[in-house]
Computed example of a mutant assay.
Amino acid sequence: MKHDEPQDTLKENSEKADIKQKLRLFFPVVLEGLEQILDELKCLQSIKENLILSLQRNTLGGKNNRGLCVVESLKSLLNRDLRENEFREAAILGWLIEILQGCFLMADDIMDNSTKRRGLDCWYREVGIGRAFNDSQLLEACIPLLLRKFFKSHPLYLDLLELFREVTFLTELGEQKDLLSSAEAQRVFSFDLKNYDFIVTYKTAFYSFYLPVKCALLLSGNFNERADATTKRLSKLLGYYFQAQDDYLDCFGNYASLGKVGMDIEDNKCTWLVCQAKMAASAEQLMFLEKHYGGRNQDSVFKVKQLYRELGIPNMYQNFVEATVEKIMTEINDIDEDTGIKKIIFYKFFKLIHKRSR
């Protein structure tokens, strides 16, 4: 596959911009659907306004990659431009995934004591922890209601409903493991790549990669067990790469690009970096890491980052990236397209996350 030629890149970027612009036209459709649901429930106007504000504030402002993936994947699976009703269905599902992302981020920021998100104060810092927690629950609870609103008469309604419920549950299992790992009494001594793999797969891969592609597979009519297995395998690989990038950027990234302040060290997170440091450290360095990792002061954060550099973690990360990219491209090239899944779907997903700065 030759997708690296300048003219191909320009064409892809132009098509993506067009799809993104068209996708955004359907956000008001979703909002209107939610307003109608609230009106039918005779919701108080003040509550309705607060919920709509929360949904807008915590859904918009991102790159919309998950929503875009549903539309672009469906287009690739059908190998043609989407009809109006097909684009509408894919776009609405894409926005429901973006809403799900919003509710996860709201809760995650509370649990991690984060300060910034997408260049703005975290929602809980604006409205308080209590309301932000409730807003996160409300956004999650909106999703099945919106699925019923837009897909109740659709033959895939139950499949979509079960898919969103399952992926939501799996993601929250990953979040639970992330929290428990951070709270371990032994701290870094309990971190290992087995725990990290579970966190990454459940907390990141399912909703960020598997869910958008699975939605497109269902809409295309190409869904089968082999296509599902391929989607899960590639989603896990992409999710692992994505989260390791996220961990590295949290520590060594630039705030101006990220739009948020990295807190993994202060929050005692089980990250790719600390797992590598644990394996590479001497007994003395491990005790030093144990002393300072999780310390909520800038001196401890500085010392952990300094130790990472002494251990060569940045170089290890670059070697990891090279090996992982090679593995991902091999897996993509080995996809059997007779199952209905298309290589181009995962190639585009890979391009979205490769060498990202935020």
Rank of each mutant, 00 (worst) to 15 (best):
E284R: 05
E331T: 08
Q298E: 12
T330F: 12
Y293C: 03
I345A: 00
K291A: 07
K348D: 11
Q285G: 04
I341L: 06
E266A: 00
Q276V: 09
S300M: 05
C275E: 03
I341G: 02
A281T: 07
R309L: 08
D334G: 11
I335W: 11
V321T: 05
K355A: 15
F302T: 11
N333M: 06
A277P: 08
Q276S: 11
K342P: 00
A280G: 05
A283C: 08
S300R: 09
E322Q: 08
F288K: 02
W272N: 12
F302P: 12
E326V: 09
G262Q: 00
L311D: 02
E284I: 03
S282E: 02
Q318T: 05
I332G: 08
N333D: 07
V301L: 12
K343C: 13
K278L: 02
A283K: 13
S300K: 06
H292I: 00
S300Y: 05
A283E: 13
M316S: 11
E337H: 04
V301E: 08
F346H: 07
N297R: 01
Q276R: 10
T330L: 10
D334S: 14
F302C: 11
E310R: 09
I344F: 11
Y347V: 13
Q306M: 05
I335M: 06
F302V: 10
N297Y: 01
P314H: 03
Y317R: 08
V325S: 15
K303D: 10
K351R: 12
G340L: 11
E284V: 03
V301G: 07
E337I: 02
H354A: 12
M263E: 14
S300F: 08
L273A: 05
I341K: 04
I345V: 03
K269E: 01
S300E: 02
L311V: 00
I335C: 09
V325G: 13
A277Q: 09
V321C: 06
G312Q: 11
E326A: 14
G294C: 04
Q298G: 09
V274N: 03
Q318E: 10
E310G: 08
A281S: 13
H292E: 04
L289E: 01
L286W: 03
D336R: 00
I265G: 05
V274M: 10
Y293W: 09
I265N: 01
Q306F: 05
I344N: 14
L286S: 04
D334W: 12
N268Q: 13
M329Y: 10
K305N: 08
A281E: 08
E337Y: 04
A323N: 14
T271C: 05
Y347M: 13
M316G: 15
Y317S: 07
K303I: 09
A323L: 15
K351Y: 10
I344S: 14
V321Y: 00
Y308Q: 04
H292Q: 06
I265S: 03
L311H: 00
M329H: 11
D336H: 04
R296P: 07
I335V: 14
E284C: 04
G312W: 01
D299N: 15
D264S: 08
N319K: 15
D299I: 13
R356K: 09
K348W: 05
I332Y: 04
M279H: 12
K348L: 14
Q285D: 03
Q306H: 06
A281V: 13
E326Y: 09
K278S: 06
K343V: 10
D299Q: 11
M287S: 11
I345E: 00
V304M: 02
F320V: 02
H354Q: 13
S282Y: 02
N315K: 15
V304W: 01
